[in-house]
């Protein structure tokens, strides 16, 4: 009740849900742990460890609460995928640059997410383990080209070297805020209707203007 999923208007706090997808060995756990490590004290993260993490941010004067949902990479847990990523504002799809197969898996998830959630969700495709550049099996051009073709943004990270992670999340947050604001505008001026419906069904907005706005902020210019 106090948490308004999907972000709110004006000076309210935005609450965003981000799902983390990727095969078992691509390093998504280390990635998210790196990000949520508290710089100011070294205390342990949350009680659910790396599965579910929250982070409070302040971006251009706006408060943002991030809820990061890790998902199991194993095929056998995919049957319930949709209930994991329903109501998500963003998705981070991680592959290992040394593992071609993990990149193919990312493509499958993109298809599924677009099918289930439409263009409302901000997609990030992340090539992790750039510290192993020498063993790269997924070319930069291929990955970036693919990302652009599906309206996602591509990032390179190294959880080991703590490279590119802060930027990834900051960028994603800004994009999610833009999407939320565009959505608010499309919903009509000031009429602050609750953005969540009772059963948590994502409201698909087919207003062409909102669609272009979302597409614009999600493509990597």
């Amino acid at each position: 009740f106090t948490m308004a999923a999907g972000g709110g208007a004006g000076n309210k706090t935005y609450s965003f849900k981000v799902v983390l997808l990727g095969e078992g060995c691509v390093g998504k756990t280390s990635l998210v742990l790196r990000y949520c490590e508290n710089k100011f004290n070294d205390k342990h993260i949350t009680t659910l460890q790396a599965s579910f993490l929250t982070k409070k941010l302040n971006i251009t004067g706006k408060r943002v609460n991030l809820a990061i949902w890790d998902t199991a990479g194993q095929e056998r847990f995919h049957a319930l995928g949709p209930i994991y990523y329903r109501d998500s504002n963003g998705a981070i799809l991680v592959y290992d640059i040394t593992d071609e197969d993990s990149f193919q898996k990312v493509k499958n998830w993109v298809k599924e997410l677009r099918k289930m959630l439409g263009n409302e969700i901000c997609l990030c495709i992340v090539g992790n383990k750039v510290d192993l550049e020498k063993e790269r099996h997924v070319s930069v051009e291929e990955a970036e080209g693919y990302a652009e073709s599906v309206g996602a943004k591509h990032y390179h990270t190294s959880a080991k070297l703590n490279k590119g992670i802060e930027e990834l999340f900051l960028d994603l947050c800004k994009r999610m805020m833009e999407t939320a604001q565009a959505e608010e505008r499309a919903k009509g001026n000031g009429a602050s209707q609750s953005t969540t419906s009772r059963r948590g069904v994502q409201i698909v907005d087919d207003d062409p203007q909102a669609a272009t706005a979302a597409g614009g902020c999600c493509s990597s210019a």
Binding site: L48, A67, W69
Partner: peptide
């Protein structure tokens, strides 16, 4: 309101 938070995550995992 709980759907996005820890409770929602735990229930989803349990269902899965």
């Amino acid at each position: 309101g709980y759907l996005i938070g820890e409770e929602g995550y735990c229930l989803t995992s349990m269902q899965s």
